[in-house]
Simulated scan of single mutants.
Amino acid sequence: MRKNIAILCSGGDVSGMNPALKHFVEYALKNSLNPFFVYDGYEGLIDDKIDKASYCDVAGIINKGGTKIGSSRSRRFMQKKYRAIAKQNLDHHNIEMLVVLGGDGSFRGMDIFYKEHGVKFCGIPSTIDNDIAGTSYCLGVDTSLNIIRTAIDAIRDTASSFGRAFVIETMGRECGYLALVSALTSGAELCLIPEVPYNLEQYEESFKNQIAAGRKYFLAIVSEGIKEDVREIAQWFEEKVGIEARVTILGHMQRGGNPTVYDRLMAYKFVSHAIDGLLNEQHDSVICYNDGGFTHKSIQDVAFQKYQLDSELLCHLQDLYNV
């Protein structure tokens, strides 16, 4: 008898989820499993928004951003009584295994669900913040970085034309990964992230000297988690450095866009390893990517640990920005 397996998306959406859904259906059927979609994340699990999936449901979605089956942040799933309802709904559909695209909060919720009700699951790290411990890469990050790159390149055109400083804010919560990588790969003159203490005064003399030597514009890439508002950074450029400044907050555009080739490929690999793990007695794990390979790690090693930025990236930050 064919076993049933479901997939859901939890938390913030990322480009790469739709390619993951497509391969989930294809790989499940290849392994003689019946694939199901859970719509709207854990909310859908509670409300029984669970339907069998087929090739028709995933045709033409590999190039689409976001997630066809929706996502949510569910407060109800934090309560035991609603988790019990979710289990009843899974039992009604005879679903024994669950693949979860999400972040550490989603994985902690599933860990509790597994311990209470024995629902086998595998988590796939999916967040543009790239802030999940235990994995060097999360689904959606490459697409987000390319969206940011396109925006910065466009802003550089107007910055150079008008001779201005632009302060560009990226997402990332308390993790500066997006800002750091974007600054390094765009040649920005300033990068500020939550992980590294900074004092704007240390840049004043250098920036003034650069203007005296002919510099016409500045690009400053800052993470949303820094201590100061981006408008304060722009004000500092105008009052202390002596150059007109503007602010660009990239916001949720960083989550959208056509998935890059890399994210489509990573979606394929993440899903394959997740399903293989579930079929080989990995019943409460997260599939992680490090040093070119995939491993299953326990929830304790992922969702309950603090993410640390790559030390080599931090060295590059120190070398380029003298922090």
Rank of each mutant, 00 (worst) to 15 (best):
T170G: 11
L45F: 05
G242M: 08
L278F: 06
E201Q: 03
A84E: 15
D301I: 08
E238Y: 10
L21R: 09
Y217K: 03
T127E: 12
I221F: 01
N89T: 07
Y262F: 13
F270T: 07
V286W: 13
K49D: 06
G242A: 02
I299E: 08
A220H: 05
G66K: 04
L309P: 13
K208G: 07
K68N: 15
V38C: 03
G44R: 01
M78A: 05
K216D: 03
I112N: 09
Q88D: 15
G109Q: 04
D276W: 02
D319F: 08
R264W: 04
S272R: 04
V141F: 04
G293Q: 12
D319S: 06
E312D: 12
C288Y: 04
Q79L: 05
R156P: 07
L317R: 00
K120R: 09
D47S: 06
D310W: 02
I5E: 00
I7E: 11
C122Y: 04
D48I: 01
I128V: 13
F36S: 01
D263P: 07
H273P: 09
A154S: 10
Q308C: 02
T158K: 09
D91E: 15
E312S: 11
R76Q: 11
F37S: 03
F113A: 06
G242E: 09
N94M: 14
I155Q: 03
F294H: 03
K306V: 10
G292M: 11
S54Q: 02
Y217T: 04
E96K: 14
D157L: 08
Y268P: 03
I50V: 11
I152Q: 02
S206Q: 13
M110H: 05
D104H: 02
I69K: 15
F207N: 01
T185N: 14
N130S: 11
E232V: 14
R173G: 14
D13F: 00
T170S: 12
K208D: 00
C56Q: 11
Y42K: 08
D310V: 08
F162P: 02
V230C: 14
V222Y: 09
V271A: 02
R156A: 01
Y27G: 02
I168S: 00
I193W: 14
V323Y: 14
L29C: 06
D142Q: 08
E205K: 04
D129P: 15
P259K: 15
H296Y: 10
I155L: 14
V14H: 06
E169I: 13
E281T: 13
S144N: 12
G102L: 00
E281K: 14
I193E: 11
T158L: 05
R149E: 01
Y268V: 03
F237S: 03
I128K: 07
